[in-house]
């Protein structure tokens, strides 16, 4: 399943938590012009290094689709960060 929401939570210096919910699909739509340039750049790199663009797209797609469920949590002293992909 494609990632839907990325949750970023971090603790500020005053001890309060700040939480961001990033909806993936709207952000991707918003950045689609930049993504188009990135895709073209990726294709050029694929041709330069003799990598099949189809396999590359499939591989990147698999990685993206496997991302939901990933969670990274780190806490040290005052610093605390949580990144969760759903």
């Amino acid at each position: 399943m494609m990632p839907q929401i990325v949750t970023v939570r971090y603790r500020k210096r005053d001890g309060r938590w700040r939480r961001w919910f990033i909806p993936v699909v709207p952000v991707v739509v918003l950045l689609s012009p930049l993504l188009l340039i990135a895709v073209v750049g990726g294709m050029v790199v694929c041709f330069c290094y003799e990598i099949s663009p189809t396999d590359a797209v499939r591989g990147v797609g698999r990685v993206l689709w496997a991302l939901p469920g990933t969670r990274f949590e780190m806490e040290q002293g005052q610093t605390a960060v949580l990144v969760s992909i759903r």
């Binding site: 990685v63 990933t70 806490e75």
Partner: peptide, 21 residues
């Protein structure tokens, strides 16, 4: 710095996709 805690959860499917990549 205080005590450190790291908690990482990675789907095995992601590892498989990375290996294929």
């Amino acid at each position: 710095g205080g005590p450190s805690d790291i908690n990482v959860r990675v789907p095995l499917q992601l590892l498989r996709a990375g290996v294929r990549l």
